[in-house]
Design a binder for these strands. Structure first.
Lengths: 232, 232
DNA sequence: CGCATACTTGACGTCATTCAAACCGTGTGG
DNA sequence: CCACACGGTTTGAATGACGTCAAGTATGCG
């Protein structure tokens, strides 16, 4: 399937938003849209022909795989996010869909060419890369020193902010895009600990669970305090 | 002091290596060299006029500062590394010299202008940013799941590789650029644990301590096995 | 010499993991 | 319709790794 930039929901927020209409047209000729079901892999660590992609809808996880085959979630990708190591000879990490997702993919060579042709694009990707770096460092800060409760509260806080439209306040309700196992894995905890701490957060009145995946934020200020996050 | 690119030790490896002679000349007019003593700060989190810089010699640390004033080391910067958040309105982290260091600094506005003028530079910075991202994710992987012993072994392993010239084998001896406190902080441990685990690594015969900061690698294979790092 | 800073060492406590079992919603087959 | 199995989840009890607290030992510097 070729691209349909006209109706693309992230046409104003993705990296390609910096291009002019004609440039976008030219770039789109090299791209393909692709859809992934939950659990499907975009590419695996070690792939030498891993594509680049902009996420249009859904959610992805980026995972490291250690020698025993255990996964470790390093990053989540949300719509308008960019995936792809333009300069590495092969992919360092797995990229897997968390929900049904649609992406706009490009061969690495094509994307490299586009960067040469459209300097604005390089700038946009640099910006995105630095944002990724900040997000990863923020997760690092969390896992290095914080208690299990703080880590979980911070994750819920971030999801609540991500689920709201304005990004300066929390949504009062959202659905977890991750299983308990994925949460545990991402925070460097075990499933059991996540389960217990979630129960504690519920008992303190910060949140309420609605089914297995639904979360109601009952006390945003408390959740934020527990999360150790400063300003929203 | 203005720049002396002719004699710059990282002129072939830093981001500016992609520029032509004339371009480098033009850019150097906007930059200044600066030297920092151990402990001196390049800029602090929150600075709105934080500079960008290429590290010429020495070593830097990038630290997050939490609400209680505790520092957490997020990244180390080695010569030819680039520092600076080009797009954020203010710095998110402190940047501090670990040893006497010399840098080549630019005002953010000048660096932004240079990116526009020299597309190759944007590409080079993008590459560096993605490398930073990989390094940070590797640290994240370590702190999330690994035991204290594994974390420490991995850090020693990385330093040993960094200290060797070829980067595909370990140096047999190197000096730790970090104090115990800084190591602990970076790995999400306490000073006491670092001290104890270092003693254990010595007892297993992987390394020997030479003075407070010196490390002899006695058994590179053992160190690598303990570190959980795959290929060198 | 005296003090400061960095590091080491030991005893004890705590929090998260581990191991084990039960629970729940969903789909499948009898 | 019920029995059953299965994946994801919850809960409990015991263990253990790391942190905390508190001394004690270099090393360096005024």
């Amino acid at each position: 399937m070729s691209l349909a930039c006209d109706t693309c929901p992230v046409r104003d927020s993705a990296a390609c938003a910096v291009l002019t209409e004609e440039e976008r047209e030219a770039l789109s000729a090299a791209g393909r849209t692709r859809t992934l079901e939950r659990g499907e892999m975009l590419f695996a660590a070690g792939d030498d022909k891993a594509a680049c992609a902009t996420l249009v809808s859904g959610a992805l996880k980026v995972c490291a795989v250690d020698e025993h085959g255990n996964e470790q979630i390093l990053s989540l990708v949300h719509p308008s996010g960019f995936i792809g190591e333009l300069f590495a000879p092969f992919a360092h990490h797995d990229v897997v869909a968390l929900t049904q997702s649609t992406l706009c993919t490009f061969a690495r060579a094509d994307m490299n060419r586009a960067i040469d042709d459209y300097p604005e694009l390089a700038r946009a990707l640099l910006r995105r890369s630095q944002e990724d770096l900040l997000a990863t460092r923020s997760l690092l800060e969390l896992t290095a020193h914080a208690s299990a409760e703080t880590r979980l509260a911070a994750l819920l806080h971030d999801f609540a902010v991500a689920a709201s439209d304005t990004s300066c306040h929390m949504a009062r309700h959202f659905e977890l895009p991750l299983t308990r196992g994925e949460i545990a894995n991402m925070l460097g905890l075990t499933i059991e600990t996540v389960s217990r701490k979630l129960k504690e957060l519920e008992e303190t009145g910060a949140v309420a669970r609605k089914g297995k995946r639904g979360i109601d934020v009952l006390d945003p200020a408390l959740l934020q305090a527990l999360s150790g996050r400063h300003s929203v």
